[in-house]
Amino acid sequence: MKQAIVARADVGMGKGKLAAQVAHASLSAYEDTPDRTRKEWKGGGQKKVVLKGESEQQLFELADKAEREGLPNAVVRDAGHTQLEPGTVTALAVGPGDEDAVDRVTGDLSLF
Results as ranks from 00 to 15, higher is better:
residue 2 K to Y: 08
residue 9 A to S: 14
residue 40 E to N: 02
residue 75 V to D: 15
residue 49 V to C: 02
residue 77 R to W: 07
residue 54 E to G: 13
residue 22 V to T: 14
residue 89 V to C: 13
residue 63 A to R: 09
residue 87 G to R: 07
residue 97 G to Q: 05
residue 29 A to P: 01
residue 73 N to D: 07
residue 41 W to F: 14
residue 105 V to Y: 03
residue 55 S to E: 02
residue 49 V to Y: 12
residue 107 G to H: 11
residue 93 A to Y: 11
residue 93 A to C: 08
residue 7 A to L: 15
residue 102 V to L: 04
residue 66 A to N: 01
residue 98 D to Q: 07
residue 32 D to P: 00
residue 73 N to R: 00
residue 33 T to D: 04
residue 59 L to D: 13
residue 75 V to H: 01
residue 35 D to C: 00
residue 87 G to L: 11
residue 97 G to K: 06
residue 50 V to P: 01
residue 57 Q to H: 14
residue 69 E to L: 08
residue 110 S to R: 15
residue 47 K to Y: 05
residue 42 K to C: 00
residue 98 D to Y: 00
residue 93 A to R: 08
residue 65 K to N: 04
residue 85 E to D: 12
residue 53 G to D: 02
residue 19 A to R: 00
residue 81 H to T: 12
residue 46 Q to C: 07
residue 2 K to E: 10
residue 12 G to W: 06
residue 94 V to S: 04
residue 49 V to N: 01
residue 111 L to K: 10
residue 62 L to W: 10
residue 83 Q to L: 04
residue 105 V to T: 07
residue 62 L to M: 07
residue 25 A to F: 03
residue 87 G to N: 01
residue 92 L to F: 06
residue 20 A to D: 08
residue 26 S to I: 03
residue 61 E to L: 05
residue 60 F to W: 15
residue 55 S to P: 06
residue 50 V to S: 11
residue 45 G to P: 08
residue 107 G to L: 13
residue 105 V to C: 06
residue 112 F to T: 12
residue 87 G to D: 03
residue 94 V to Q: 02
residue 26 S to P: 01
residue 77 R to C: 03
residue 69 E to V: 01
residue 67 E to N: 10
residue 8 R to P: 02
residue 72 P to F: 04
residue 22 V to A: 15
residue 72 P to Y: 06
residue 24 H to G: 02
residue 97 G to V: 12
residue 20 A to K: 11
residue 47 K to N: 05
residue 12 G to Y: 11
residue 14 G to E: 05
residue 70 G to L: 07
residue 64 D to K: 12
residue 111 L to Q: 06
residue 78 D to T: 15
residue 69 E to D: 02
residue 60 F to Q: 13
residue 46 Q to N: 03
residue 79 A to I: 09
residue 51 L to V: 09
residue 73 N to M: 03
residue 93 A to L: 07
residue 38 R to P: 00
residue 99 E to T: 07
residue 102 V to H: 00
residue 12 G to M: 12
residue 23 A to D: 03
residue 101 A to C: 04
